[in-house]
């Protein structure tokens, strides 16, 4: 089943490449000029890894940089801005206690105590969310990314109960009207109501050999690479600096590391 699905996706990918390689006349000149669609050449050299991972150097962040990273993600992925407890977020900030509750912090050093921390999906090596999904709508791909098939998701929200990091959001309502029309990114689909969504480590950028948008925007405060490759940049950073992960006792083996 999974094999044939992957084959289909490959085929669909190739067809899409074929389409985008030609000029898409129906979009008109304006659309093309403003938002040039990626062409086949853009996908010629995808970034590859066994397990993508990320190191966040928390000391390098201030409010402006947080905003820059969050906006880069949310604007490009058409994440709707919904106020209140039914909000949708892929990447956001929390204080120390909210980020690392199992540390049970006491008498924390002031710098760490007052700092905020950037939270996103941990793309766990052993994710609980994909284990519980009854339709494989959320799954782990060959590169260790935990991603979503929004067209297969039935909206049972079992993955949200399964995720110990609160990384998942549910579309309680139609997201369309909560995305500013002038900000709508036509190169990325927005979701429909009734499905779960989350950070994908920019799987669509990695396929073009590019870095995730938040990493790009962070100007070096976030490092991205293959955790399985000892020569990768993330591994180099982790060798030098002490870094922790959120809730390691949940057994999920998260792939996002925090340098305090």
């Amino acid at each position: 089943m999974q094999r044939s699905r992957r084959d289909f996706l490959k085929l669909a990918g190739v067809s899409a490449l074929g389409l985008s390689a030609g000029t898409l006349g129906f979009l008109g000149e304006g659309a093309q000029a403003a938002d040039a669609l990626p062409s086949a050449a853009d996908f010629a050299k995808p970034a590859k890894a066994k397990q993508w991972g990320m190191v966040i150097d928390t000391a390098k962040f201030d409010d402006a940089l947080f905003k820059k990273c969050i906006d880069a993600c949310h604007d490009n992925h058409n994440v709707p801005k919904i106020e209140g407890k039914q909000e949708i977020k892929w990447i956001w900030t929390e204080d120390f206690e909210g980020s690392f509750p199992t540390e049970r912090p006491a008498f924390l050093a002031e710098a760490q105590e007052h700092r905020k921390y950037l939270l996103l999906c941990n793309h766990c090596a052993n994710p609980a969310c994909t284990r519980v999904c009854p339709t494989k709508a959320t799954f782990k791909n060959d590169e260790g990314l935990v991603i979503m098939d929004y067209h297969r998701c039935i909206g049972c929200r079992y993955c949200m109960a399964g995720c110990p990091y609160g990384a998942r959001s549910f579309n309680f309502r139609d997201p369309g009207e909560f995305i500013a029309k002038d900000k709508l990114n036509l190169q990325y689909p927005h979701r429909t109501r009734g499905v779960v969504e989350k950070c994908t480590f920019c799987v669509e950028k990695l396929a073009q050999g590019k870095l995730p948008l938040c990493v790009e925007a962070s100007g070096g405060a976030m490092v991205f690479g293959d955790l399985e490759d000892p020569k990768s940049e993330v591994r180099k950073v982790l060798k030098e600096k002490y870094a922790i992960r959120r809730k390691p006792d949940a057994g999920t083996d998260p792939s996002v590391f925090y340098i305090l």
């Binding site: 009854p134 494989k136 039935i154 579309n171 429909t192």
Partner: peptide, 15 residues
Amino acid sequence: IGQPQRMLNVLLNST
């Protein structure tokens, strides 16, 4: 469930 019309995905993609 959020997408009841896709309910039978549980059978189609049984996991």
